[in-house]
Amino acid sequence: MTTAIQGIFAVRPYTPHCQVIHDEGDHAVIGISSGNSYFTHDRVLELARWGLDHFRQVDLIWTDMHVAEMFVALGYPEVEAQRKAVKNLRGVRAKVTSAVAALDPEGERLRGRPMSALLELPAYQRIRSGLDVLMADDPEFREVCDQLAARFLTDKLGGQPPTELQREVCIKYVCAEVPLFLDTPAILGVSSSLNCYHQALPLAELLYARGWGLRASRNQGHAVITPAEEREEQDRRA
Rank of each mutant, 00 (worst) to 15 (best):
residue 3 T to K: 07
residue 5 I to Q: 10
residue 7 G to F: 07
residue 9 F to L: 10
residue 9 F to E: 04
residue 10 A to T: 08
residue 11 V to G: 03
residue 11 V to R: 00
residue 11 V to T: 07
residue 13 P to S: 09
residue 14 Y to D: 11
residue 15 T to S: 09
residue 16 P to Y: 10
residue 18 C to H: 08
residue 19 Q to S: 15
residue 21 I to A: 07
residue 21 I to V: 15
residue 23 D to P: 12
residue 25 G to W: 06
residue 25 G to C: 10
residue 25 G to M: 07
residue 26 D to E: 15
residue 30 I to R: 03
residue 32 I to C: 09
residue 32 I to Q: 02
residue 35 G to V: 01
residue 35 G to I: 00
residue 37 S to N: 14
residue 39 F to P: 00
residue 39 F to S: 03
residue 40 T to F: 08
residue 41 H to F: 11
residue 42 D to P: 05
residue 43 R to L: 14
residue 44 V to E: 02
residue 44 V to A: 07
residue 47 L to Y: 05
residue 55 F to P: 02
residue 58 V to C: 06
residue 58 V to F: 07
residue 58 V to S: 03
residue 59 D to A: 14
residue 60 L to E: 02
residue 61 I to V: 15
residue 63 T to Y: 01
residue 64 D to W: 00
residue 64 D to M: 02
residue 67 V to A: 00
residue 69 E to N: 01
residue 73 A to R: 00
residue 74 L to V: 04
residue 80 E to W: 01
residue 83 R to A: 10
residue 84 K to H: 01
residue 86 V to I: 11
residue 87 K to C: 03
residue 87 K to P: 00
residue 94 A to W: 04
residue 98 S to A: 14
residue 99 A to L: 08
residue 101 A to F: 09
residue 105 P to A: 12
residue 105 P to V: 08
residue 107 G to C: 11
residue 107 G to N: 10
residue 109 R to T: 10
residue 112 G to K: 02
residue 114 P to R: 04
residue 116 S to P: 03
residue 117 A to P: 02
residue 118 L to T: 02
residue 121 L to H: 07
residue 125 Q to E: 11
residue 125 Q to H: 09
residue 126 R to N: 10
residue 126 R to Y: 04
residue 128 R to E: 09
residue 129 S to E: 15
residue 132 D to L: 12
residue 134 L to D: 05
residue 134 L to T: 04
residue 135 M to S: 10
residue 138 D to L: 04
residue 139 P to W: 08
residue 139 P to F: 10
residue 141 F to T: 04
residue 145 C to L: 15
residue 148 L to M: 13
residue 149 A to N: 03
residue 150 A to N: 09
residue 155 D to T: 13
residue 156 K to F: 11
residue 157 L to V: 07
residue 157 L to T: 05
residue 158 G to Y: 10
residue 159 G to D: 10
residue 160 Q to A: 15
residue 163 T to S: 15
residue 164 E to S: 10
residue 166 Q to P: 01
residue 172 K to S: 09
residue 172 K to N: 12
residue 173 Y to S: 01
residue 175 C to H: 03
residue 182 L to A: 06
residue 183 D to C: 05
residue 185 P to V: 08
residue 186 A to G: 04
residue 186 A to N: 04
residue 189 G to D: 09
residue 190 V to K: 13
residue 190 V to M: 11
residue 193 S to W: 05
residue 199 Q to W: 11
residue 200 A to I: 11
residue 201 L to F: 13
residue 204 A to D: 09
residue 205 E to Q: 14
residue 206 L to M: 15
residue 206 L to H: 03
residue 209 A to T: 07
residue 211 G to H: 04
residue 214 L to Q: 03
residue 215 R to D: 06
residue 219 N to I: 02
residue 220 Q to Y: 05
residue 221 G to L: 08
residue 223 A to N: 07
residue 224 V to Q: 05
residue 226 T to G: 06
residue 227 P to F: 09
residue 229 E to Q: 12
residue 230 E to I: 11
residue 230 E to Q: 14
residue 232 E to S: 11
residue 234 Q to D: 14
residue 234 Q to M: 13
residue 235 D to M: 11
residue 237 R to A: 12
residue 238 A to S: 14
